[in-house]
Nucleic acid binder design. Structure first.
Lengths: 222, 222
DNA sequence: TTTTCAAAAATTGGATACAATTATTCAATG
DNA sequence: CATTGAATAATTGTATCCAATTTTTGAAAA
């Protein structure tokens, strides 16, 4: 039996690979909010027919990244301020629950893993790599809770927001704050101090929410 | 401008209509856990090509009702006991939050609406109609909270479980309990008594969890 | 100049046809 | 009799083509 060492899931389906590729493009800011993704254009770009493109778009729709209208195409989805507020309230609810379960279950090994990811994250220059590392950090933070359903749900809450949370990555000040907040989470995990961890995640989410609110001020659709 | 009076969303897409149809068939128990849904078979049954069938299957996959494997088809997804536990924990988390916001915002009109739905639910003989009414009840219960994202998330938590929650509808005893629990929620909403409502929803979810656990004891897939 | 409306172009949705992969059959072998 | 393995069948994935719908264009009219 072969064990996979890379944490990245290989997309065996072409539609899956396309969805991953398009997700990255969206997160990298290739399209602006409200812009439509033309099937023919994407098909010729990736040298496939429109069928797998359509399946990839359906997947992105399910992830909440695009809005699809009958006979009118797929457009990049924007976020209203109220939606952002609600999404982050939900994240606090779920991430808090995950933390409560994960913190007591953290070990020296799991904390070490967190530190490694954070080191990698600190030196990440590329926007996409930064997103991936941040995702990995939070997954590792919550992994000891052993709650796959919650993690999946959390992923759905993160997806539509990631686009905006790294759009403003440039302000180095916020980047430094981000790093400090992650370190606070790590030390709370190391000390198995749930209350401190909860306070830290609340602060972290509040900071991220502010960034997303600032970035997602476009008054579009649905 | 035309206002739609029916609460049911019309599926303009054929794929959407197919997905709704298939979802009902799944909930009605047409297939057992682990059974595969053949594209050709469904295509000829609904007199369409396999393309819209595939899109419908992708949608059901996103809803967590089926598992899709490359070149191996779509199979009805089962639930492990641990998954059921976690799903209901998450529901309690989110439905509790929704209740906290909804109860103080309930009005005479919204409570009246709840009563109407509950009356309809009580006389519902058909399994599918019962599911739809129960869904409507909970939507009406949480509607005053005005939290669309939370409702959507809740829908995703309910979907994979509905199949099993009505499988054991037959025991009239449980059906009577169910009715009583709903009535408790209604009166708590009428009295704007949040704590009582929270206790009632916990009891209701615990009861439903037990039913689902009993029904979903099959040790299949993924 | 602006508005209206019909024809043309562009785009998406669905059907058919073919390629890639998996499942099944059945004869040969131990 | 059980097991192996190659040929066959069945099934899914993708490309191409046509139909349905929307968007654009441009000329006529106010």
């Amino acid at each position: 039996m072969i064990l996979r060492t890379t944490p990245c899931i290989k997309a065996i389906t072409t539609a899956g690979a396309l969805a991953e590729r398009l997700r990255n493009e969206i997160n990298a800011g290739r399209w602006t909010v409200g812009e439509t993704l033309r099937q023919e254009e994407l098909a010729s770009e990736f040298a496939v027919s429109r069928i797998p493109i359509r399946e990839a778009l359906a997947q992105l729709h399910a992830e909440g990244l695009i809005v699809v209208e009958h006979y009118r195409g797929a457009r990049i989805k924007g976020l209203e301020p109220l939606q952002v507020e609600e999404l982050f309230d939900l994240r606090l609810l779920i991430e808090g629950d995950l933390l409560r379960r994960a913190i007591p279950a953290h070990t020296k090994a799991s904390v070490r893993r967190l530190q490694l990811i954070q080191t990698q994250l600190r030196h990440e220059e590329n926007r996409l790599g930064w997103i991936a590392s941040d995702r990995a950090f939070h997954e590792a933070l919550y992994a000891p809770a052993d709650r796959p359903q919650s993690l999946a749900l959390l992923g759905q809450l993160r997806a539509p927001v990631e686009r905006f949370s790294l759009q403003q990555l440039s302000p180095r000040a916020r980047q430094r704050e981000w790093d400090q907040e992650h370190r606070a989470l790590i030390s709370a995990a190391a000390a198995r101090d749930t209350d401190t961890a909860l306070a830290a995640i609340k602060k972290h989410l509040d900071g991220t929410r502010a960034i997303v609110l600032a970035a997602a001020c476009s008054p579009q659709e649905e």
